[in-house]
Amino acid sequence: MKALFQKYKTVIRFVVLFLGSYVLLSICYAVYLQLSKGGAFTPDFITNLVAKQSSAIIGGFGYEALVQPSITEPIMELYVNGKYLARIIEGCNSLSIIILFMAFVIAFAEKFKKTLLFLFGGAVLIYAVNIVRIVILAVSLYHFPEHKEILHGVVFPGLIYGMVFLLWMLWVRMLTPKVRR
């Protein structure tokens, strides 16, 4: 049994670090969401902030954008030029994706400073791209509402998860020792 653990030591380390950090970060996020209930921001501070930032950028493109808390659900309602377009829910704030990204990077952690910088840079990039994703999705839905299912269900999730995958590949590539010839 000891030989088996030695043989698969790196795989076991990866799985333990990935699952451990993912579970820990997910628990922290769940606590954050629980503490946010009934607070000053609907549905929570970060989702509220993402909705307002998205609305401001949409407005910057010349559209009349408005986000407001729903009176019936813990969501933000997004209007463009007076037309109700979308619900911005807790899942739209990118934190779940950032947690997944961080768990993978931590599982392949190397030097503390390098890992911390990559985690911070990646999280900021994912957050920013998520806001851009919401903006483009909202404007696309405004002009092409008949394509809602493919835009919201396939194209835009594919972009954000594809970017996370590319960040993971960059991280692994940064850790791979360079072979000199």
Rank of each mutant, 00 (worst) to 15 (best):
L49K: 05
V50A: 01
V50Q: 00
A51T: 06
A51H: 04
Q53F: 03
S54P: 00
S55F: 05
I57G: 00
I57D: 04
I57W: 11
I58V: 13
I58D: 02
G59I: 09
G60D: 14
G60N: 14
G60W: 15
F61N: 05
Y63Q: 04
Y63W: 12
Y63A: 03
E64L: 05
A65W: 14
A65F: 14
A65G: 12
L66E: 10
V67D: 06
V67E: 07
P69A: 15
S70N: 10
I71E: 14
T72F: 14
T72K: 14
E73T: 07
P74R: 09
I75D: 03
M76V: 10
M76D: 10
E77S: 04
E77R: 10
E77M: 09
Y79R: 06
V80Q: 06
N81S: 09
N81H: 12
N81L: 02
G82D: 15
K83W: 12
K83R: 14
L85T: 15
L85I: 15
L85K: 13
A86V: 05
A86W: 12
R87N: 09
R87S: 03
R87W: 07
I88A: 00
G91R: 11
G91Y: 11
C92M: 08
N93W: 04
N93Y: 07
S94Y: 11
S94A: 12
S94K: 03
I97V: 13
I97A: 03
I97C: 00
I97Q: 06
I98R: 00
I98Y: 04
I98H: 02
I98W: 04
I99C: 03
L100P: 02
L100K: 09
F101L: 05
M102G: 02
M102E: 08
A103K: 04
A103R: 04
F104H: 02
F104M: 02
V105W: 06
V105R: 01
I106Q: 04
I106D: 03
I106T: 10
A107G: 07
A107S: 07
F108G: 01
A109Q: 05
A109M: 06
E110D: 12
E110W: 13
K111H: 09
K111A: 00
F112D: 01
F112C: 01
K113R: 05
K113S: 00
K114G: 00
L116S: 07
L117Q: 13
L117A: 10
F118P: 00
F118E: 00
F118N: 00
L119T: 09
L119V: 09
G122Q: 06
A123K: 11
A123S: 15
V124A: 13
I126V: 12
Y127V: 00
Y127M: 04
A128V: 12
A128Q: 07
V129E: 11
N130M: 08
I131Y: 08
I131A: 03
R133C: 04
I134D: 01
V135F: 06
I136V: 13
I136Q: 05
L137N: 08
L137Y: 12
L137T: 11
A138S: 15
V139M: 15
V139C: 13
V139K: 13
S140V: 10
L141C: 14
L141R: 14
P145D: 14
K148M: 13
